[in-house]
Every structure is written in structure tokens, then in C-alpha cells.
Design a protein around this nucleic acid. Structure first.
Lengths: 129, 129
DNA sequence: TTGCTCCTCACGTCACGTGAGGTGGC
DNA sequence: TTGCTCCTCACGTCACGTGAGGTGGC
């Protein structure tokens, strides 16, 4: 059986493989109402381009920024609102989210640098005595 | 000793009492860099009007919406950005957050209604046989 | 001294991701 | 039949809030 049923729509195993995510996690996201997608007549989930776009935003928020699902819900609703009412386009939005990831990583690097400096200092002291 | 040091600035116990929040939690929020406030010369934390405003937003997000601290960080940064770049004022923003709380509560009420309906159904079935 | 403050360490609870186990349709 | 899908249940890990215990300054 081909795993593509409609043009551009894919089954759960394809999505799981492409984004390196557990199928159960995808089912969890649906149950939590973060993603709504179609089903085949045989009750199999079908992911289209819009759902995959949304999934990418969810993964960026959860994996890269550590936001929980309640936070994802607030942020995605906010995104929708901004789009509707204030003409914030998706590129602007994604660039913002990316910037957050960048800031976060910069923070981690600063922390790593501090840890390294501290361990160098420790070594310096211990070899000194 | 009076617990007010400067006009409009209060110590941690006052804040804890007013918002019904554990002092350790307030210290945690500072450590996580969600709130930055002044200290007295004796190293005691001082909360001013701006910090309390920010704290209210944090509590609304964590308590009412279940957002974790990483999510709060993203959302508050987003708020700052919107203010700076897109002239979204604080009233607009808070009304949005309040709307989210309202939607969430409506969802809970829908769930409660479903549970009640299900238990009525169960009772109906059990008395029937 | 009293009642606050500061700090660190540790525990309990819950959310979230993952896995097992058993079902059914193409 | 094979390899997917569906589902529920349960476990491990981690974040976050809370508490204890001991310190110090007004």
C-alpha cells in the first residue's frame, strides 16, 4: 500500500520520520487540540501542508525553547490574532521566534563559558598549592 | 521596623501576602530572570509598581493558563516587542490574555457538562437493568 | 530579642514524552 | 500474511512550587 493517500497529505509514520518525533507524541498533540487534521475513511490521520507548518512551530517552541503545551496554545492563538488584527505576517513572526532561540542559545553559551572559566580557575588553584 | 522603605516599594512578605504566593516562588522568579527588581543596601528585595504589574501578568499566565516559565518568558518578550514595534498597548494585550482565560474556562465548563451528562447516562443505564 | 531578611538543599506533584500490548483495516 | 494504523495504560524524567534549616542585619 502506498503511504501517500492524497497529493501533499501524509500519514503519521511519514511525519514521525521527517521530524524525528514519536507517533504517540503526534497523537498527544492532536488530543490536546494543538493540531487538527483530517482522517481517511479508515480513521487514519492525514497531515497536510498547513498542519506540518503548524507542527514545525510547535516543535520549535517545545524543543528549542522548552515551552509547555499550555504555553504553545497561548502563543499560537496569539499568532493567529496578530495575523488577523494587526497584519503581522508569518515571516515576521517566525523571525521573532528564531530570535528567541538565538537569544536562548547565546545565554547557554554564556553559561558554558562561565563554567569553563570556573573550572580553569579551580585547576589553577589546585595545581598552585 | 516599617515594612515600607520607599514610597510605592514593598518587601517580599508584602508581595507574598497580597498575591497569596510563597516567598520562595518570588525568589525563584527572580533567579529565572522573569522579574528584575531593586535591592536595599542590606540586600533586601524591593518590588515597585512596574514589577508588581509584571508579576500580575506572570501569575495570570502560570496560575490561570498553566503556562510554564519558559513560555512566560517567550510571551512577555513578545509583549515587549509588540509594544515597541507595533503599538499594541497594554490594555489590548491584557484583554487578549483575559480572553484566553475566558476561553479556557469555557472549555473546562464544556468538559464538566460532558462528565455530568455521562454520569447521568451511567445512572440511567444502571437503574434500568 | 523579635521578626523579618537572605541563602541552599531536598522533596512531592504533575506534565509530557515514550513504550508496551492488543486491535483492526488495506 | 505483512506492516501499517488505531487505542489505552503505565512508567521515567524533569520543572516548579513548597518547606526546612541555618545565617545575618535592622
Amino acid at each position: 500500500m502506498p503511504r501517500r493517500k492524497r497529493e501533499g497529505f501524509v500519514m503519521i509514520s511519514i511525519v514521525a520520520e521527517r521530524y524525528n518525533i514519536h507517533p504517540q507524541t503526534l497523537r498527544l498533540y492532536e488530543r490536546e487540540d494543538l493540531i487538527r487534521h483530517a482522517r481517511t475513511g479508515g480513521n487514519t490521520r492525514l497531515y497536510g501542508p498547513d498542519e506540518l507548518k503548524r507542527l514545525e512551530m510547535i516543535l520549535r517552541l517545545t524543543r528549542d525553547l522548552g515551552v509547555n503545551l499550555a504555553g504553545v496554545e497561548v502563543i499560537l492563538n496569539l499568532h493567529r490574532r496578530m495575523q488577523q488584527e494587526m497584519d503581522v505576517d508569518i515571516d515576521q513572526w517566525m523571525s521573532y521566534i528564531r530570535q528567541q532561540v538565538f537569544d536562548r542559545r547565546a545565554g547557554v553559551e554564556r553559561e558554558n563559558a562561565l563554567v569553563k572559566a570556573a573550572s580553569r580557575e579551580l585547576q589553577r588553584i589546585s595545581t598552585k598549592k
